[in-house]
Amino acid sequence: MDTGFRRRVARLTRRWKARWSDRQARWLTRRVPPVTQLKLSQRTIFILPTWQGVFFGLGAIILLVIAIVERNLVSLSLSALMLSIFLLSLILCYRNLSGLRLTTQVADDAQRMRRCFVGDTAQFTVVLSAPDRRRPYQDIWLGLGTGALQRVSVAAGGMIEVTLEEAAERRGIVKASRLLLRTRYPAGLWQSWSRPDLLMRCLVYPRPQACTLPLKERPVPTTGLGRQAAAVQAGVEDFAGLRDFQPGDSARRVAWQSLARGQGLKTKQFVQDTEPQVLLTFDDFIGREAEAILACLCFQVLKLSRSGRAVGLRLPGTVDIRPGQGEAHKHQLLQALALWN
């Protein structure tokens, strides 16, 4: 008999976990506020013994007591050695993070931000530097809290640049999760870690979705001639392919050969290359969901830019970009698509 008890427990556990992580996140925000540059110190480093360390330390204390009771000086010295190694390990482990300087190239404006498409991995760069000329940092595991960690070491006085990746799941400006640095140097008896937030951001464009530009969007010649004239003009252009016949298509453009082959009624399509300017608007793909429209627009921006044509974009709201060319212009368009809402 299913009373739903298990489900209820699972829900409760989930909720409790969510609340706990919320609390933790809030606490962390207070304790380690987001900054772009950070020197790890007492306030930002946490340290606890590992299980191995607990056994090591407790065992050493028990042995110490036994040695005192048994009045065994050799055993006493050995246990004191173990205990002091355990305590020393605490200091070494802490020192392996403390003083490490973390910086990230920050870009407040979207222009200079790193960029990627939805579904790709967003990349973030962190620079770790050791300010002290005599103190190296060894064996630090570094990653964004959610993903896999990578092992890095910083030589004394040196610096390294680390690229971190996180899946980009939605468009817009994506914030990286808190950084996780942890180390168990030197003997794995203690683990110290830090969770700094370096305000790392990435601009995520919509994922391009293959689509064709509707026919009516084929640019109308500026001469203002009628549809017929346009068709004639188009007719002299290169053959581009076939598409299903739609009522109203000119009989001259029906592909009779394919009909004869039993492939149904098709209309020949021709590419219009003479007019370099295209203005993409939201209404071109009307009838789809907003995100899908953005995806199609993104594809068109990429495709048209590649073929070297001037592309403009008009979106509902304030976005109205004059047609233009070049890499910077392309990114301006994509950025508009990424940030539109």
Binding site: Q52, F55, A60, L63, S75, S79, G188
Partner: peptide, 16 residues
């Protein structure tokens, strides 16, 4: 490692 640590600590109590 953990087991090795525990065994070593116990063995150390025999050191004379």
């Amino acid at each position: 490692h953990t087991l090795a640590v525990v065994l070593l600590l116990v063995a150390m109590s025999y050191a004379d």
